[in-house]
Amino acid sequence: MDLENKCCCGGENKEKAQIDEILSKYVGKKGALIPVLQEIQALYNYLPKDILEYVAEKMNIPISQIYGLVTFYSQFHLNPRGRNIIRVCQGTACHVRGGKVILQAIEKQLGIKAGHTTEDLRFTLETIACVGACGLAPVMQINEDTHGRLTTEKLSAILDRYK
């Protein structure tokens, strides 16, 4: 919605053009909302509110329903994501090997709770149910890297590697 009203001198029109380009690929296609949102999220790293309102208007889908869909799937995010995504395993094996202690230690170190992002957008902290590396428990993933046999002492050095 707001996109329509933004002035033509800044970068916003380019923004609108990008969204329009995504939408144009799906005109008249059923079930297009999820792929549209995936493409938009790939562009922004999250789904900004005003962009969703613009999509609702253009695709003629109630904004309430789009919000319902976005909050249903864990792949979609309504807040900016950090540059580095930490996923601390809370699966059974990691649980018995102290996964919770690892999570609490990271929460303390970053000053955020699981599900949140640091203010400087450096880290987003999440939990995951099992990464399939139970032999390395307790485990966490940062971006594509897997770190196993964690202790609270090792955490600072690992986090320091991600800027």
């Binding site: 309430s64 919000y67 319902g68």
Partner: peptide, 13 residues
């Protein structure tokens, strides 16, 4: 909106 135990009836956002 939301899922499972956390499902609610919600307005947009």
């Amino acid at each position: 909106a939301g899922r499972g135990f956390h499902t609610i009836v919600s307005t947009a956002f």
